[in-house]
């Protein structure tokens, strides 16, 4: 059995190694796959905050992913057409600067998470799963019918947005940017998990009544976790849109919310690098099984079933041999 700390280093090192090796062998497609895994890992780490630490099974996290994507799409679209975004009396210039886009994506998705969280946290259990699903569908149908930004067809951006000092069109440079962000998000996650806030949140998940008796409000703790979680997933959405240079309503789809949950569980719920392991495995399976057979989803389904039924604690749990830290 491998200690979890060592396993984490191995996972991140492996991801970086794959990308560097691919760059050396001049295989841009493999770098793109590694970037995809990195971005999905950021999104799933966001979800892991709500799901793993807060115990909030959100089947609507695609909302934040999609909002991040559309924040990028809309700002870059307006920069392309040189027309400012009209928001009533306000007019905001479009931009192609990644930092500005990220700030917007984080702001918009945390605001949405605040509103959705305030409403959804009135319910719990299955009702929470369903109401987050419903919010996801609401945004999905809104995006489908919002013809100003492509409606069902989505929105293409011709040039990847820029980051000061980097050439983002070079695959390895864009990968490095995403990888650094992933590391930052992971540091934030582990700091949070060990902070007083994280401990209180953990307790609120397990026994809300006791948390209340020591004078903390479990709902507010969960709301804070949900907002942070949405913000991180929103950032990932903006990166994902930049990777594909394309946004479409499918970023809001409930299948994507389901896939994010799959990533977290595949890797290991409430484990620091669970989402990283899950995203790497998912992208590898998608690529490898997808090359073997057109019907790779059958095998993905079978693998998922086996993991749920026999490997509690996901991949990281299986390899590190420590029983799941959650519950």
């Amino acid at each position: 059995m491998i200690p979890e700390r060592f396993l984490n280093a191995l996972l991140l090192g492996g991801l970086l190694g794959v990308a560097l090796l691919a760059d050396w062998r001049d295989e841009p497609f493999t770098i793109t796959l590694a970037t995809r895994a990195t971005i999905l890992a950021i999104a799933a780490t966001g979800l892991n905050l709500a799901l793993g630490l807060g115990g909030l099974v959100s089947l609507g996290h695609a909302v934040f992913f999609g909002l991040g994507g559309y924040a990028m799409g809309i700002l870059a679209f307006h920069a392309q057409t040189y027309a400012p975004v009209e928001l009533g009396p306000l007019a905001i210039e479009g931009t192609t600067s990644m930092p500005l886009i990220w700030v917007t994506a984080i702001a918009v998705s945390s605001l949405a998470a605040l509103v959705i969280g305030l409403l959804s946290l009135r319910t719990s259990g299955v009702y929470f799963i369903m109401i987050t699903l419903a919010f996801g569908q609401m945004f999905f149908y809104f995006a489908v019918s919002w013809s100003a930004y492509g409606g069902e067809d989505g929105l293409s951006i011709y040039v990847r947005n820029g980051f000061p000092g980097l050439n983002t069109l070079d695959p390895i440079q864009f990968f490095s940017l995403c990888f650094v962000l992933l590391c930052l998000v992971l540091v934030l996650w582990s700091r949070l998990a060990r902070s007083p806030f994280g401990l209180a949140l953990n307790a609120a998940r397990q026994v809300p009544a006791r948390v209340e008796t020591v004078g903390l409000d479990p709902k507010r703790l969960k709301l804070a976790a949900f907002v942070l979680s949405g913000a991180i997933t929103g950032l990932a959405g903006a990166l994902f849109a930049d990777l594909n240079r394309f946004v479409s309503p499918s970023m809001f789809s409930w299948q994507l919310s389901g896939e994010l949950i799959v990533l977290v569980i595949l890797g290991g719920v409430a484990r620091l690098c669970g989402p990283v392991a899950g995203a790497m495995l998912f992208v590898a399976l998608e690529h490898w099984l997808g090359g073997l057979t057109e019907f790779w989803h059958v095998w993905l389904g079978a693998i998922l079933l086996l993991i749920v039924l026999f490997a509690k604690g996901g991949l990281v749990g299986l390899l590190s041999g420590r029983p799941a830290s959650h519950d």
Binding site: L51, V57, L59, G125, V126, I129, G258, I261, V262, I265, V269, F295, W296, H297, V298, L300, G301, A302, L304, L305, V308, L309
Partner: peptide
């Protein structure tokens, strides 16, 4: 519920792709 969501999501994948097959 989390395990149930995941396992039945996996069943959807199997049923849908199996039928497509």
């Amino acid at each position: 519920h989390l395990d149930q969501v995941l396992a039945t999501f996996a069943l959807i994948l199997i049923f849908s792709e199996g039928t497509r097959w």
